[in-house]
Design a protein around this nucleic acid. Structure first.
Lengths: 322, 322
DNA sequence: CTGAAAGCGCTAACAA
DNA sequence: TTGTTAGCGCTTTCAG
């Protein structure tokens, strides 16, 4: 492998000049630049990025932290990788498998300057531990953080859930069940709040006995259907934590002869591919914008020119299930 | 940020000794080690990885090349990230979006020593281009490569498909349709070969008019059902390129009143979560072992002690659809 | 516009 | 066992 010095010798200039050519500095005469470039091409030379990183103190790499790579986070992940790539940054995956120690490696890598910044998709370490690493580089989170020093692109799920509830009410439905996700999460709490506020505002009964929790997957949705059947009085509609849960509800309900949407309306969250495939009415997060914003929130620490944020708004895509 | 030199000064030893402590060299007296470690802890020191990488000429990073991050490759991806992490290697994602130039960045990064090795999941560049980078570091591929210089962990799909066909024949079925994936791919060709060989061997008719191609997603499976209905004579069974296609076939067939498995048996490939959820009989690739082997194939260029390969065998998981 | 030289922070061969 | 001293390959003042 050839290096800077070799190119310098062969072209008859100094390392400094070659470096300037490489970095597109304006302080190089066109002829010099041309000569140097010719040698570079001839030698098939490329700069060693470790040397560049060491010298510059930047790696143009961003770490992405998650428990695992699941379908749920896929759209966000790919959008982020995309957004980062647009600005010349690469993305390294850190999967923790819920192991605190393993996750910590990502933060250590920020400290060790292996990455210039960190995106937390999901994290298992304590917030105090995490924010202690803030001084080593920018950190941003997807999930809402209870600490103000870690910015987040999370959206207030209240607004999205309100959209879903409003829609059902406007369909004339009054008995609404809910299949929530992680019970302790702030997102779930905001969703509950939205449901209860709107029901109360319309003078309708809040059915806490129709809260199903920890629903994440297709199978969870199927189970929910069976539990609804044993309820005596049956709900007219259900709002599901995500499209997979809703898919489970839909397939199982239909299999048991339930008429969707006439006897049971279904609204889900995320509006992923499967929602359009199965005809699910779904609340859409602006995931691409969220991912873009995640990078934008990191950008002050990465680029000379920070990126502006894009607006984040929920949308409702109405399909056959309502 | 403190550095080696600072630790050396504070502990009263040389940089070399501190470096030895860091690298767990045996040629350091216990007392010295203890003293140095104390200072390291006190100063909250960690070595700069760029400097280490530059000096050692290794980064402990592996690039993973794919067109996009889709559900199809997820299990393989996560398994690989896992396998690499077990040996201290991190994984960088390179998504090409089918853009040759963008994909080339990954290969340039191998040349620039940003990564020590490369895993190709899917690639859009010409093989001749790719193998030209072989001299810069180890490259391994998931998909089968037509060139011997790029090793691959792809399995001969002939064997897996044979398993599926055999199973259907043993169910007493003789009229079998097939929903294949990418028509030009070697995998598809091997699958076709297996089907045709086995049918011929049993003196049964090979139904090329029942080949459906380019089936990848749930929706493709649904379409296949409709096309099967217009066939005049109907197949008794269908083998699908993957679980999603099979899921589409299953749901649409049932929706149209087809009795699965009695009137239509379905076998799919990959045996992913959805297969068990929906009760699909599915052929299982040993994905974890494939991912492990991918790293093992890279390992001669990465580790002093190359890793042994694990055996790769297809398996058939029989469920309700047959 | 160009060059010399001092870093960036760590490793490793060679001495002692 | 420990220290000295070149590197690793590039960037960036500072002079000229």
């Amino acid at each position: 492998m050839s290096n800077l010095e070799e190119i310098a010798k062969l072209s008859g200039f100094s390392k400094a000049t070659v470096s300037r050519v490489l970095n597109k500095s304006r302080h190089v005469s066109p002829e010099t630049r041309e000569k140097v470039l010719r040698v570079i091409r001839e030698m098939d030379y490329v700069p060693n990025r470790n040397a560049v990183s060491l010298s510059k103190g930047k790696t143009l790499q961003i770490g992405m932290i998650t428990a695992d790579i699941s379908e749920i986070i896929l759209p966000f992940m790919t959008s982020f990788v995309e957004a980062a790539a647009e600005h010349g940054f690469q993305t390294i995956i850190y999967t923790s498998n819920l192991d605190k120690q393993r996750e910590l490696q990502a933060f250590e890598d920020l400290k060790q300057k292996r990455v210039d910044g960190l995106l937390i998709i999901t994290s298992v370490n304590d917030l105090s531990v995490i924010s202690a690493y803030g001084k080593y580089g920018p950190i941003v989170s997807w999930q809402r953080m209870e600490r103000p020093d870690i910015p987040s692109v999370a959206m207030d799920q209240y607004d999205g859930y309100a959209l879903a509830v409003q829609h059902l009410l406007s369909c004339g439905v009054t008995r609404i069940a809910n299949a929530f996700g992680r019970p302790e999460s702030l997102n779930t709490q905001r969703r509950i709040q939205a449901y209860e506020d709107l029901m109360a505002a319309h003078g309708l009964e809040v059915r806490r006995d129709w809260y199903f929790k920890s629903a994440y997957h297709l199978t969870d949705g199927q189970n929910v259907v069976h539990r609804m059947l044993g309820l005596g009085e049956e709900p007219q509609a259900i709002i599901c934590a995500n499209d997979y849960v809703a898919a489970g509800v839909l397939s199982e309900a239909r299999r048991l002869g339930w008429d969707v949407p006439n006897e049971l309306r279904i609204v889900s969250f995320d509006n992923m591919q499967i929602a359009s495939t199965l005809g699910l009415t779904s609340v859409q997060n602006p995931i691409r914008n969220q991912a873009y914003n995640a990078f934008a929130l990191l950008s002050p620490g990465l680029l000379k020119q920070p990126l502006p944020l894009k607006p984040l708004e929920f949308g409702l895509v109405v399909r056959e299930t309502t």
